[in-house]
Design a protein around this nucleic acid. Structure first.
Length: 504
RNA sequence: GCUCCGGUAGUAUAGUCCGGUCAAGUAUACGGGCCUCUCGAGCCCGGGACCCGGGUUCAAAUCCCGGCCGGAGCACCA
């Protein structure tokens, strides 16, 4: 639509697209990437940025994208999170070609498991957790490792048939107990978990661990490139090894360090704790970087996409992003489309002697054709207290788009002035104003939760009260506007005129 | 503690693989100016960095060694 009527306009506001660096060993049309969320918590900006990278690369190479829920721990996954991730990815404009849950493939994992056992690559181990951990630490093999295949096979059958209790045994890979990479030291492949699963119920009780499930899934989904954060780097060797034993193809790995934002927790545990302590209200608190939080916060999905492409590098270096970098992009996208309104924080009444009544048309935007609204004025106005502080007796002030006044006398709560003239006079302060026909407006101003010293920010959420022009009532819930000389804000409530401050 | 990995301006990055064109590019933040009936946007200008120490070399941000600092992993989590 916009492309047709005003291509030049679109071009003007189109952010300069910075290209993603090329993907190693990528062939156009053949790239397959994946979104691998664990549905055990709410989606946050880190998942989103990772998802954006996978999506952008699939698109860049005309490839395909999988959404694959890594839900092989029934004790951790919860039904509501599946949809939270789907909705979150959609909000960012991430489109996937295929979708599945790892929990649907248990039978398949079992087949691969028995293949590993038959070939002597895996064994059932009944060591306690402590023994196992000690053995791996000291690099010594346990007695079960030498069990004959037949015994492993029958124990495996017992595991599957429900004869063995949760925690009693585990299927382990015969890895390399002396490998420097500790994950190679006979890791657990399958364990028993007696707990109903949100997708498959209580049909299964033997569940694969992450490495075996991911190793198999990445191969059978035909994933060519795994883009993931660096905490998985040590798993590459293991997963490739498992695949080599099974005759499966391995993908190319591209790893990068986690995405963190200054003063903002992302870990589930930490956020849960903050909610528990009442520091933040809920998972969609605007101070949180959950997808629901940043959406309420007024940040645009396009801004986060652009940010991911332009400010992100595929590096291992630890980085903590400053929110300002994201705000700058968000502001650039928002500026040409956000309507301007007058909002007066901490209002002070001002009476203008001799002010003629006007009806003025105020433009919704200084340069873009976003329309106008009509305002009737009398001789009473509200202006920000902050601007009153700069006044002296006799100083001139311009009520924006209206007329100039001269201050006669003033206190912190009241200003008396006289009408001067309508014409613009150079060099006098210009302020936004609201007439007696106003509405009460409340703006929530979120800030980072943690200060640089790691302490909780006592001012992480402030509320600014003020008055807005009547037209504020037409702002829709979720609409982003700019309150002139105050900042960009998003309406946060269907009924109340409550807004959330986005950025200046 | 052990094992990996990394360290470019305030912040985030480009460049590092295949040493020279990097007296280091970009974005953001900052300072100055222009423009604007917003302290927003836009435009112009400016200051600002290769962790430290050795080595190799005609030449090192790039290669080697040591140190320091940071991150990740060391689960029957993913």
């Amino acid at each position: 639509m916009l492309e047709e009527i005003a291509p030049a306009l679109l071009e003007k506001h189109k952010p300069k697209e910075k290209k993603l660096p090329p993907l190693p060993h990528a062939e156009p049309g053949k790239v397959v990437t994946r979104l691998p969320p664990e549905p055990s918590g709410y989606m946050h900006i880190g998942h989103a940025m990772s998802g954006i990278l996978n999506y952008m690369y699939a698109k860049m190479y005309d490839g395909k994208l999988w959404l694959r829920f890594e839900d092989t721990n029934p004790r951790k996954v919860k039904p509501e999170y599946y949809e939270n991730f789907r909705a979150g990815y959609r909000w960012f404009g991430i489109e996937w070609d295929y979708e599945k849950c790892n929990s649907e493939d248990l039978e398949l994992y079992y087949e691969y498991a028995s293949e590993l056992i038959r070939k002597g690559f895996a064994y059932v181990c009944s060591c306690s957790k402590e023994e196992m951990s000690k053995g791996r630490f000291t690099m010594v093999e346990c007695v079960h490792r030498q069990q004959p295949v037949e015994i492993n096979l029958s124990l495996w059958k017992e595991m599957l048939s429900g004869m063995l209790e949760e925690g009693s045994v585990v299927l382990r890979l015969k890895g390399d107990m002396t490998n420097k990479n500790t994950v190679m030291r006979d890791p657990t492949l399958f364990r028993i978990i007696d707990y109903p699963h949100p997708v498959v119920g209580d049909k299964y009780r033997v569940w694969p661990t992450y490495d075996i499930a991911a190793a198999i899934e990445d191969a059978i989904c035909g994933i060519t490139h795994v883009l993931r954060s660096s905490e998985f780097a040590l798993r590459d060797e293991l997963q490739n090894y498992i695949r080599s034993l099974l005759g499966l193809q391995s993908p190319v790995f591209v790893e990068y360090s986690r995405f963190e934002f200054k003063g903002t927790p992302l870990a589930k545990r930490e956020i849960r704790q903050l909610i528990g302590q009442g520091v933040v209200s809920r998972w969609d608190d605007p101070r949180l970087a959950t997808v629901d939080g940043i959406r309420r916060r007024g940040l645009l999905p396009e801004a986060i996409r652009e940010f991911t492409v332009s400010q992100t590098g595929l590096t291992y270096t630890k980085r903590v992003y400053a929110w300002e970098l994201l705000y700058a992009i968000n502001r650039r996208i928002l500026d040409p489309v956000a309507k301007r309104y007058f909002f007066v924080p901490n209002p002070v009444l001002i009476e203008v002697e001799g002010a003629p009544a006007f009806h003025v048309e105020l433009p919704y935007h200084p340069s873009e054709p976003l329309g106008k609204r009509l305002v009737y004025t009398g001789n009473k106005f509200y202006i920000p207290r902050k601007d009153v502080h700069g006044l002296k007796e006799g100083s001139m002030l311009r009520l924006k788009h209206l007329f100039n006044i001269k201050v006669k006398e003033f206190t912190d709560y009241m200003v008396k002035a006289t009408f001067v003239c309508k014409e613009v006079v150079e060099g006098i302060p210009i302020v936004q104003w609201v007439t007696e026909d106003h509405v009460n407006v409340e703006v929530l101003v979120p800030d980072i939760l943690y200060l640089d010293d790691g302490q909780l920010n006592p001012d992480s959420l402030k509320t600014v009260y003020g008055v807005g022009e009547r037209a504020c009532r037409e702002i829709k819930h979720g609409e982003r506007v700019q309150f002139e000389r105050f900042g960009f804000c998003i309406r946060d409530d269907v009924n109340a005129l409550r807004f959330i401050f986005i950025h200046t």
